[in-house]
Design a protein around this nucleic acid. Structure first.
Lengths: 232, 232
DNA sequence: ACCTGAACACCGTTCAAGT
DNA sequence: ACCTGAACACCGTTCAAGT
């Protein structure tokens, strides 16, 4: 009786939280954030809007959960082969997040939103843990660990937000050829800025055009790591 | 005739772009981003929704314009009294943005959105110009100016996004007493995390609780500035 | 040129009802 | 316990019509 009742109770559970998340990420990857509507999602899963609410709550909760899933996965990956240096470890974490955003452009916006709205939520804590776990090995004394970790984390977050790559919200198509066009248009715009007001931009416009995002990102990390040696 | 015609043409222009921006910022300050609806705005200005579209375009354009206005104002302010050091100048710019967000909580989200979506728009360019204009005086050689400026700018953006302060989207009320409650709840949550998985968080939870956002922000800038000396 | 405001085409969320 | 889907209460945008 009891067994039968249990079986009956669960008879209809054909929908799981994981399934919904997976479908949501697929919609997001294909069409950006505006493609994820409750209607599109319930159609894709052949279910009703209420079923989605039942499993994952509101649309915003769903987006947060998808973001958390992907970022946590990125943080868990790249455990790095044995004898790597703390510097390599930190670069590895930073690039893992960088790459996750590259694969899922919509993530950039959502990651930033989540950090702004919940500055000490699981995503930030996960990042702090992975990065902060290395600062001791860098020679930073324990009473400066938090200073060191937060400088690194903040640099990483800022760099990622600006390198989130063109067309973050749009379709996800093109992207590569886009980049050149984007920088072309942008630098044309900068050159029209009054030189008197923007001497720096005029001085560096060439460098900006040539720079490689990933290389620049690593340069920035190297600068911060150098700065941390002063905390010893 | 011509004069009369001109006067007649402009007879009805009682609405200006500036007025709309001002009203929009007032709504945003009072009730956060969800309080800025086209309907609420047109009611406040005693006009129709079409009039707003005519002057400022879409809601998203309006939000971007409001963000740009406030950030540009922050960047123009604090020109700093005469013989200040480049370090002071950089700190001044960073804190000006920091303070603008403190006064307009909704700005944090919008600033980040704008940077993600338009990484080389006027806001970012303005920030780069103000910060980058100082790196020469720091002794950084010209071929590393862009590296130096972007490291600083990225650190500033990341730190601001995480210190955007609790309840970014909500009403804007409370805020001060909120903070303690927030960190209380957050650190309680961290202490429940498995120590084996989160050794770093457990080690620094006390520091996080005690830390002052502004001080921490300046410490991070000092670290980056130290790192930049290696570029000389 | 500037403004009006009704009409339109969407949203996300809720909830009584079913299994 | 899990799911359905119609109903609801909003949205932002458009556009013919007015001045």
């Amino acid at each position: 009786m009891t067994t039968r009742a249990r079986r009956t109770e669960r008879r209809n559970q054909v929908l799981s939280r994981e399934q919904i998340l997976e479908a949501a990420i697929a919609l997001l990857d294909a069409g950006g954030e505006r493609a994820l509507t409750v209607r599109a999602l319930s159609e894709r899963l052949s279910t009703g809007s209420g079923a989605i609410a039942y499993h994952v709550g509101k649309r915003d909760d769903l987006l947060d959960a998808a973001t958390e899933t992907l970022i946590m996965a990125a943080l868990k990956a790249k455990p790095a082969g044995a004898g790597t240096s703390p510097e390599d470890e930190i670069r590895g974490v930073a690039l893992a997040v960088f790459d996750a955003i590259d694969e899922h452009k919509w993530l950039a916006t959502r990651l930033m939103l989540q950090i702004v709205r919940n500055p000490m939520g699981p995503v930030t804590v996960g990042l702090f843990e992975r990065v902060g776990g290395q600062v001791g090995a860098l020679g930073v004394p324990e009473d400066r660990w938090f200073d060191a970790a937060s400088t690194l984390v903040h640099y990483i977050l800022g760099a990622i937000s600006q390198n989130a790559d063109i067309a973050g919200d749009a379709s996800g198509l093109d992207a590569d050829a886009d980049r050149e066009a984007f920088f072309g248009a942008a630098s044309a715009a900068w050159e029209e800025l009054p030189v008197a007001d923007y001497p720096f931009m005029h001085a560096v416009v060439g460098r900006i055009r040539e720079h490689d995002d990933r290389e620049q990102f690593l340069t920035g990390i190297a600068v911060v790591l150098d700065g941390l040696t002063r905390l010893r």
